[in-house]
Write a protein that binds this DNA or RNA. Structure first.
Lengths: 217, 217
DNA sequence: AATACAAGTAAGTAAGCACTCACTTTATGT
DNA sequence: ACATAAAGTGAGTGCTTACTTACTTGTATT
């Protein structure tokens, strides 16, 4: 046991791997709150309960620490499967051409995920504005396949004669627009929910109904 | 004449007001590109073609320079009227209960505006993430009244029995979601338009059709 | 108990930051 | 022509930053 009084949370000396991960966790939090430029290595060290020198023992530069976050986070996504591929409810709805549940379930899962990973959304925004590469990776690995996934289902339903002939990508953009804009409001612009305060379930239900009535023949 | 060789654009000595405004313009550009923390007073001075000391003659602190942007920008908005109030096409459509043109015209004007003022959108995002007050002002002066404006038209059409009984704010969020998310894609995430490349007119048309079919009885 | 190695630190360094001050240049009204 | 006031600068100040170095402490193994 390398920790003293583990239950109190006071740590005096950690194994290398533990400290490594702890510093990373603190860095993610701080980078997502204050951005790359707004986060100092001193603050990271303080919040990790070690000296600045320890931060640089684990990560050669501040940039390397930022890059380590990318690997850490993209590993969570990149277990081979994209979230909608390993979601059995989603796959079942697709197979059954159950339009409502294809879109409802997708919207709900997406918004639930956004809610539990606010840090990542802020990180993504900061990284794009500050021109780091996180957002590009996310785009290629996640957003692009997502347009492909939803787009091809829509095309299928158009061939079935159920959806009107609108460019599928425009329908995808409309639907993702509702979802992402709503999450961004909840996380960033209107945390108090003063403009609109509804559950994820209600949001998913209404967005789905508006979209489906909007595109069905 | 306080400028030498005005046609070449090389300025040697400016009147106080001119320089004041020029420094402000440069600051807006740089703050919107790199954020508050990412912009140095040295860079602002260099791009303005003066020494750093001159920047501080015109603006006592870097914070004051940032605040001056708020005043400058909110004056552009705050001429008393909100954009949709002084838009005669919009007002005509409202009066005639021409649903299509109420939403089409609104979407088109909004996206056209976003396109010509990318700087402001980036500034707004940075200001929210970096926790300055610009975004709050924008929220109160602009976004809140906007929900009121679109919301009350929707309520009216529900009373007319034309729109289905959905919470109007949810419809507003859906529509603004499509528009703002689309603009954000064009300005920030996908400047190359690799996911979707359509004109503002096409986007406005499709978003409006999807929304109206989605909420009409 | 001695060793050896990993965890940890105090006290730096050089560069960059917002901001200042003593001073020089230039246009203009009399 | 010359005084004057405003436009403009170079060379700083003290503080913060990312990063380093030379050193100390703790602990698992023999």
């Amino acid at each position: 046991m390398t920790k003293t009084t583990e239950n109190t949370g006071i740590t005096s000396r950690m194994a290398g791997d533990e400290r490594h991960e702890q510093i990373l966790r603190v860095a993610i939090k701080l980078f997502s709150l204050n951005g790359f430029r707004g986060t100092t290595t001193k603050k990271i060290a303080e919040q990790s309960g070690v000296s600045e020198a320890m931060v640089f023992r684990h990560f050669a530069t501040k940039d390397e620490l930022y890059s380590a976050i990318l690997d850490h986070k993209s590993c969570v996504i990149d277990n081979g499967m994209l979230p909608w591929e390993e979601d059995s409810v989603e796959q079942k709805a697709i197979a059954e051409k159950d339009d409502y549940n294809v879109f409802y379930n997708f919207a709900l899962k997406a918004m639930q995920h956004h809610e539990t990973d606010e840090d990542f959304m802020r990180l993504l925004l900061f990284s794009k504005l500050e021109d780091h590469k996180l957002s590009e990776m996310f785009f290629e690995q996640f957003v692009s396949p997502l347009y492909e996934f939803l787009g091809s289902y829509i095309k299928e339903r158009q061939l079935d004669g159920v959806f009107r002939e609108i460019e599928p990508k425009i329908i995808v953009r409309s639907f993702l627009g509702m979802i992402i804009h709503h999450s961004l409001n909840n996380i960033l612009w209107d945390k108090k929910r003063s403009l609109l305060d509804i559950s994820n379930e209600d949001a998913a239900k209404n967005f789905t109904e508006i979209l489906l009535n909007g595109v069905k023949k």
